[in-house]
Design a protein around this nucleic acid. Sequence first.
DNA 1: CTGAAAGCGCTAACAC
DNA 2: GTGTTAGCGCTTTCAG
Lengths: 332, 332
Amino acid sequence: MAVTIKDIAKVAGVSYATVSRALNDHPEINVITKEKIKEIAQQMGYTPNAVARGLVKKNTEMIALLIPDITNPFYPEVARGVEDYARENGYCVFLCNTNWDEENEQKYLTILKERRVDGIIIAPVSTDTIDYVSDSKLDIPVVYIGSRVDCNKSNYVVIDDFKAGYMATEYLMKLGHSNIAFIGGHDKSTSHIDRINGYKQALKENRLEADINSIKGYSFKKESGYGTFLKMVKNRKVPTAIVAENDIIALGIMEAAEKHGYDVPKDISIIGIDDIEFGSLPKINLTTVAQPKFDIGRKSADILLDLISGSADSKQIILEPFLIVRGTCGKY
Amino acid sequence: MAVTIKDIAKVAGVSYATVSRALNDHPEINVITKEKIKEIAQQMGYTPNAVARGLVKKNTEMIALLIPDITNPFYPEVARGVEDYARENGYCVFLCNTNWDEENEQKYLTILKERRVDGIIIAPVSTDTIDYVSDSKLDIPVVYIGSRVDCNKSNYVVIDDFKAGYMATEYLMKLGHSNIAFIGGHDKSTSHIDRINGYKQALKENRLEADINSIKGYSFKKESGYGTFLKMVKNRKVPTAIVAENDIIALGIMEAAEKHGYDVPKDISIIGIDDIEFGSLPKINLTTVAQPKFDIGRKSADILLDLISGSADSKQIILEPFLIVRGTCGKY
DNA sequence: CTGAAAGCGCTAACAC
DNA sequence: GTGTTAGCGCTTTCAG
């Protein structure tokens, strides 16, 4: 049986309220008894019970981070940002991996509500989840990352995805490309839609045609990029340049291209979005549009904790993407 | 204010004990009232309070996973295994990132104890943490991963690290190398020590000399491999082959070698340990000794839950590493 | 099968 | 300053 404040009270010869006050450094308490109590607590090996405290204080000092794919290095980086900020402020974070599955996402939301987490940061798999959150009156502060929400009562931290798509495409056009395809996403993701629109807009401004290749399902794995490129080869519709919705997909495309005799960047240029660490390996050297991953994490945690403490209204943060020129894009 | 079982009881016209029984599917309850109560609960939007339940049941159905570096793809893979198994069994998992910092590790342990997690899986940064756990009578089931514990009351899931080191070295020798260096770790890690011993043993059996290059501090980043190789160059002690303690370090070594004009594998062979996904990119094509990462995660969670339910004694699992031959090692 | 009541470990009024 | 007391929302005896 773990030692409780009552045990300490007995030993110290005070009421257990006094013990509580001592341990929590309340102002109205005799400093001497406080020190004495603390020492006794120490000696008895007391560990406060956060569950009991949570029950009466009605907060748990836990937040949750829901991400779709922990094996995509983009998210661990974000997670580090969230965790860093949370820990600095005394919060623990639940890391929940949804595996690109809406059902998992919603189940987690229920579980987290039962667990009475104080807040949730979520990188939603689809806009359906956002609707679900709105409808289900979760009653827990939520901050979205990587997904805008068309409602100004919502909180989110995103990059300007339109700009990201635009920048990538613009860069390719500057290199002389006019046959530029896009590979990625699904329609229930605002970041996907925005990136595509940026891509389209850039092309439009130069009177070029769009060629959008969607990945079926919610599968954002290397294999998806790989498979989609193969289809292009089969259909004899291989462009001179490709904008990939994210770096993981770009890596898959590169792999497929090279396996089929295309030299990158001589025969085909490939640009990603995200800037995952492994893209910077000299042998990979992936040109990409970067997101400030760690900052997205920190900032979203910052907003969430403000929301929890009630010291802020809703906030929409749009960070700037930036181009990182490496070696996978060439002149045409 | 969230709705509680008392609220439901009032509406249903029963005592709140009955509501509790209904909601928890106790056997001794009238099926009709049970259904009625469940419906009312549903309509009122009731969400059980896991905090309150945890207080009385003295368990939280939460476990924690402590890892040193979430940005090393090895760990996310392990984490997926843990989370998968945990979720299947109704447990939530706290993912805690210690950043290779013992102090963080110990702080987390305290926090987790306060939060009354039911169990902890930990990939310890150093054996000091293991001692800390033993000494501090945490009083929470612990399963170690990636680190043996010389005490048969402990639980762990590891690969045979000796064998991993041995296999890597043996493979290099079979290719004709006799000048084989080792780059990695620190002395307070059993996996490091075992891998080195495997490396030494393999060399010894062929009357070859060991050349061990330690990375200072607890820094298992690409940069550590990079820097250590540079030192070798400076000291004019570049071998014909290198065993890297893990893939991340191997990647750093490769990067440094190529930047300094060494062709891999023509001029120098490099083998890693772990088998992270990005090592398999055709352009990287890292030869490595693989660990069953996902299985390590699942298995450790399996053991932990058994421990929690009291249905098992301590268990030591040693999984088999296996060689994956790719392109970074050549004949000498 | 159901109700009454105790209590999990703690915090926070409210007295004194 | 400190003690007394009432809960937080729930599970679980113990009666009936």
